[in-house]
Amino acid sequence: MAAGGGIDPISQFQIKPIVPLRPFGLDLSFSNASLFMALTVAAVSLIMVYGSSQRATVPGRLQSLAEIIYEFVASTVTGVMGKQGMVFFPFVFSLFMFVLMANMLGMIPGAFTVTSHIIVTAAFAFLVIGVVLVYGIMKHGSHFFGLFVPSGVPGWLLPFMVLIEAVSFVSRPISLSLRLFGNMLAGHIALKVFGGFVVALLAGGGIGYVIAPLPLLLAIALTALEFLVAFLQAYVFAILTCVYLNDALHPGH
């Protein structure tokens, strides 16, 4: 990272094409972002597909990991949506694992963080809301829009409430995408800034040698925090996805 842009904390988000690809005037180049998306899929597949390939009754390490993740996500899904929610289990699982693995791979020094780009998190968020809308309307028809009409509200208040519900529904994908994007972006910038301080202080020499360990310690603490955030944001994303999908399953208030 340091080699790429010195102390510039933004350059780590730069997308650099690896294999240029420009069909129909669209820039579809295979970039470093695409590479890390592929690595994310490969890493998740390694755990889940290769890990479970032994089908051992007494699991090995990788299979144990696969089973733990499976049961973790399954309990999250059933906890929020009940047994019926297992319809969405593969979807929630894929989302959770993609976001988690992308966040974790982003913690490798020099790596690209797929989820630090708003377009990626927004795509996921709109995919979730799209599934909610399509499934909700397919399953419940016009009853789905009962979601926006809270029961037990006096008539004169109802238009106001419907407006609020509608705004809250529309703001869901925005908050969902911005939360993940903002966390990943800010964390990586902070890490880079403190890492840059160390380099700058050491380059300055003199008193810099004395002060340099302070931002280094902070960078170490931030790294630990970022690992926590990487997991937590993936989990929050999965939980909120479940909560929103629950509306598609049970639109009544």
């Binding site: 997308i15 820039d27 295979f30 797929v114």
Partner: peptide, 24 residues
């Protein structure tokens, strides 16, 4: 960069979803 990212994201997430839902 949006078009390229979306394109590759759709492919990679599609592959992941397919692998997870049918195999893993």
């Amino acid at each position: 960069t949006f078009a390229g990212q979306l394109f590759w994201l759709a492919i990679s997430f599609g592959v992941l979803y397919w692998l997870m839902s049918t195999v893993a």
